[in-house]
Design a protein around this nucleic acid. Structure first.
Length: 476
DNA sequence: ATGTGC
């Protein structure tokens, strides 16, 4: 454990100000996690982020923190919406990478082995996966498509028949980030994305089917119609090549214009929010975020298609519970030192976790708090939590289990072994276009997700509602 | 994360 961390509350540690830090760091973790993790590099990044002009409150780290480009992954930074900066590194390369959870009201155990196999094959066929993979069936996006979809978000796909208007009520920000403008993204970004709606990509992205295997918070589960044994679908993907290109284009331009000067790390490159360059990045980021909402909407549509084809389940019975962003910058109002302030919250590998009564939420979630979706690993578990709206972290929570082994180390570990057979021994059938992705993503490459969600629960960021056990997984 | 990187 880092000698600099001072415990101030349960599972909450202060990283005191030093050097040019404008605010202290705040690290959410348990003692056990602090033993497992080597936090030297990521904590340095937490300190670096605290140097940013206009940062308020704390430079926050979640218990799944690890090293990232400039900002740590699992980091939250809120900057003053008037006097602060906005930073592409605080959002990440995969703009609006996120997760959506849908529920099907049939017991997973009632699906026969033969039908499970058919379902997996069908999803693998209907949802393209892998690096650079697009959607061969889908219509290539035109400039006028782009103009609409980056402004409208998920509604654009729904109006074309890929889903139901009800779906929009069950998405963070109703499936749209205001301000998306196609004129602010490059031709190459549009070109890379033109056939990628409805594709998962590679790395830790996936489509997973399984069953709700434990309920921890009965009253909330009941409000959400979540029950033990229920079948679920969890989708994890983002803005694919388009978002990647938007991030790269902005970083190049910001560095060229000198915005990386006077920062402890050039990768923190950032422009004043009120400057033309800052506003241009926000519009491009919102455009990419809205592309990602459309992507997850199309993936859900294909999954509904597969449930219909193989099990005869009507499309609307694959019911969306929620869609969350975990790589995004958003303008929000938060209580800082007792005063309400408009801030730009950068969440990079962190999930919004608004509590009950939050005006932004639909009436159901105003009653309970918002669903917080935390994928774990391919075999053990993913988690469904409910937000508590803790102002210390700007109403943010963790986004995953976090790696324990590097991709390289994991590949080496599984060399000469049979990872597919191991997964089967854990009850999981995996299908991927690349065996490399599988060996890099094996469960033992990740921390135990239950330790991470326990830490955010102890720190009062969110509460566990249910545990989800995967059985069928499509990877890139 | 990524029409993956040296």
């Amino acid at each position: 454990m880092s000698k600099d961390l001072k415990k101030i509350k349960p599972a909450t540690y202060l990283l005191p100000k030093e050097g040019g830090m404008r605010v202290p760091g705040l690290v959410i973790a348990s003692e056990k996690l602090l033993e497992i993790d080597d936090l030297e590099e990521p904590l340095k990044q937490v300190r670096n982020v605290a140097y940013l002009p206009g940062i308020l409150g704390y430079s926050v780290a979640m218990p799944d923190i690890h090293w990232g480009y400039g900002f740590p992954i699992g980091g939250v930074a809120a900057t003053d919406a008037e006097e602060g900066v906005i930073s592409p590194g605080g959002v990440g390369y995969d703009i609006n990478c996120g997760v959506r959870l849908a529920l099907i009201d049939i017991p997973f155990d009632s699906i026969t082995a033969k039908n499970r196999k058919a379902l997996l094959e069908s999803i693998y066929k209907n949802v393209p996966s892998g690096v650079g993979k697009g959607h061969s069936k889908a219509k290539t996006l035109t400039n006028s498509d782009y103009e609409q979809l980056v402004k409208e978000g998920a509604k654009w796909s729904i109006d074309l028949g890929y889903g139901f208007s009800r779906d929009l009520e069950y998405m963070e920000s109703y499936g749209v980030i205001a301000g998306g403008d196609a004129h602010y993204i490059s031709t190459s970004a549009k070109d890379r994305g033109k056939d990628q709606l409805g594709s998962i990509g590679s790395g830790n992205h996936f489509v997973e089917i399984g069953k709700v295997d434990a309920i921890f918070l009965k009253d909330v589960a009941k409000e959400w119609d979540v029950f033990e044994g229920q079948t679920y679908v969890l989708i994890h993907s983002g803005s694919r090549g388009l978002g990647h290109q938007v991030c790269q284009d902005t970083l190049d331009e910001f560095v060229r214009k000198g915005y990386s000067e006077n920062l402890p790390d050039k990768q923190l490159v950032s422009a004043p929010i009120k400057s033309d360059d800052g506003k241009a990045y926000f519009k491009a980021m919102a455009a990419a975020a809205n592309f990602a909402f459309n992507n997850r909407q199309r993936i859900l549509h294909e999954v509904r298609q597969s449930f219909n084809e193989t099990l005869g389940i009507p499309f609307e019975e694959v019911r969306l519970l929620y869609d969350v962003c975990h790589n995004i910058a958003k303008f929000e109002t938060h209580l800082i030192d007792g005063v309400e302030k408009k801030v730009c919250v950068h969440r990079k590998g962190a999930t919004r976790s608004l509590g009950p009564k939050s005006k932004e939420l639909n009436s159901l979630f105003q009653k309970t708090g918002q669903p917080v979706l935390v994928p774990g690993d391919m075999a053990r578990a993913s988690f469904l939590l409910v937000g508590l709206g803790n102002p210390l972290t700007f109403c943010s929570c963790c986004h995953g289990a976090g790696r324990e082994m590097s991709r390289f180390k994991s590949s080496k570990f599984w060399k000469g072994k049979d990872p597919i057979r191991y997964m089967e021994s854990q009850g999981v059938q995996v299908k991927a276009s690349s065996i490399r992705t599988i060996v890099e993503e094996m469960p033992n490459a990740y921390k135990d997700g239950s330790l991470v969600v326990q830490a955010v629960e102890d720190a009062n960021l969110a509460k566990q509602v249910a545990r989800l056990k995967p059985f069928l997984v499509v990877k890139g």
